[in-house]
Design a binder for these strands. Structure first.
Length: 109
DNA sequence: AACATGACCATTA
DNA sequence: GTAATGGCCATGT
């Protein structure tokens, strides 16, 4: 097929972004979860890398956290607390250690 | 084409 | 319970 909807031709980034955009408000998803939904099961690393290269504010990257329920330490921490604030605004509660209960806010497809 | 880097996850000791 | 190791792939130079 030559065709029309070539999703495979699209960069892996866009694919991950699409999944992240699918995250419902007030919920959080882990890199592994997104990777699986994006078709990259087991390649959570790429998900984190994709978000790091993210420059589009249209993607709720703040809803993406690691399996520990914590915010991953990004290289360019301009607003390390920003993610936490955004999530709190969405209705996500943080623990004392600054962690989120994936059991409660974990996005379930 | 190859090398080096990177917001990770799961398993085992 | 914590600590450490291996593995997978995409992007950029």
């Amino acid at each position: 097929m030559t065709l029309d909807g070539d999703r495979g031709s699209q960069p892996t980034y866009q694919r991950i972004f699409e999944v992240v955009k699918r995250i419902p408000r007030g919920k959080v998803a882990t890199y592994g979860q997104i990777a699986q939904l994006a078709g990259l099961a087991g390649h959570a690393r790429q998900v984190g890398y994709a978000l790091s290269a993210l420059e589009n504010d249209s993607v709720p990257w703040h809803r993406v956290i690691n399996v520990k329920g914590e915010i991953s330490p990004r290289t360019w921490s301009d607003h390390d607390d920003l993610q936490r604030e955004l999530l709190e605004k969405e209705g996500v509660a943080f623990n004392e250690g600054g962690k989120v209960s994936l059991v409660r806010f974990g996005w379930q497809s």
